[in-house]
């Protein structure tokens, strides 16, 4: 939409967007891994509950900026709604330190747990070519040895100024998918710390944005790296204040396309290990 309007949001707003996006990536990955753990273990499996505790802390950080836990309608055309609150930097840095240590603990735990490894290693192997053919993106694709990340491929916001690695794994099995997710949590912590260091002061909204937006007729497509993969938005305008067409391309629909070839001839117990490691959010497919 901003691409359509030709607005460039100010730098501080872009940093705030990156920070909130990475924070929600952390919480989403924590939740995704936790939910997956309930699938291969049970609802009383302790690491699952510990992850939820960590996630609550991250959510507190998000909430202090945006005022909502999950659906924060926070981004405005040309900027963001609120500035960062006082003491946000210290609180976030503390939380990130804790999250990073905990995540390392989880990785160690899963490496040393032989039952977990038996369940996960070599299960649901998705080859790179197959994954690309099925349109999978995000952590499952990166677990299949394909460094494909919208933050690197098509840098949006200020990601080109930031230093981060694109996490990949060679194996392409369920275990790799979960590990990619855990590593990305640590990487996101690193990104946020950089942002908090570099963030300049300044306005959070671009100048001269009208109350009622009437963009020029035309089309725009914008893609971002969602928590679960490539998320694309298409907007077409005919010059009035209402868009002609809005289309969102979610990543999860492609995950479900990838499941039938993976699930052919496996045990029922493996179904949850494969489908769970995809971290597929069913209600996203529904729209």
């Amino acid at each position: 939409m901003e691409r359509l309007l030709g607005i460039e949001p100010p730098e501080r707003a872009q940093y705030i967007r990156i920070i909130t996006q990475e924070l929600s990536r952390i919480q989403s990955h924590l939740l995704g891994t936790a939910e997956f753990l309930t699938l291969i273990a049970s609802a009383v499996y302790s690491p699952f509950l510990y992850m939820i505790i960590d996630r609550e802390d991250v959510l507190t950080c998000i909430e202090s900026v945006t005022g909502a836990r999950i659906n924060h309608s926070f981004v405005r055309f040309g900027g963001v709604r609120n500035d960062l609150p006082d003491g946000f930097k210290d609180m976030t840095l503390d939380t990130l330190k804790m999250v990073r240590e905990k995540t390392k603990d989880y990785k160690e735990l899963f490496l040393s747990d032989s039952i977990y490894r038996r369940r996960m290693e070599g299960i649901g192997v998705l080859s790179p070519a197959e994954a690309k053919r099925l349109g999978v993106s995000g952590p499952p694709l990166r677990a299949s040895d394909t460094p494909y990340d919208m933050r690197r491929e098509d840098p949006y916001l200020l990601y080109k100024d930031l230093d981060f690695d694109v996490i990949t794994r060679k194996e392409g099995d369920s275990k790799a998918r979960v590990e990619v997710r855990l590593d990305e949590i640590i990487e996101s912590c690193y990104i946020i710390e950089q942002c908090l260091d570099q963030i300049p002061s300044g306005p959070i909204m671009a100048e001269g944005i009208p109350k009622k937006i009437k963009p020029e007729p035309g089309e725009a497509y914008y893609r971002v790296e969602d928590h679960r993969g490539e998320m694309g938005f298409f907007v077409a305008s005919d010059g009035t204040d209402k868009p002609v067409k809005v289309k969102a391309r979610g990543p999860v629909y492609a995950y479900f396309q990838a499941l039938p070839p993976l699930l052919e001839g496996v045990y029922i117990a493996d179904v949850v290990a494969i489908a769970g490691s995809m971290d597929a959010c069913t209600s996203e497919v529904d729209r």
Partner: peptide, 19 residues
């Protein structure tokens, strides 16, 4: 019934957890 649908389902999951 553990039958989450939509984003409230996420909060339903958290509802059963610590905190």
């Amino acid at each position: 019934l553990m039958q989450p649908m939509g984003c409230c389902g996420v909060e339903m999951l958290v509802f059963g957890c610590p905190h």
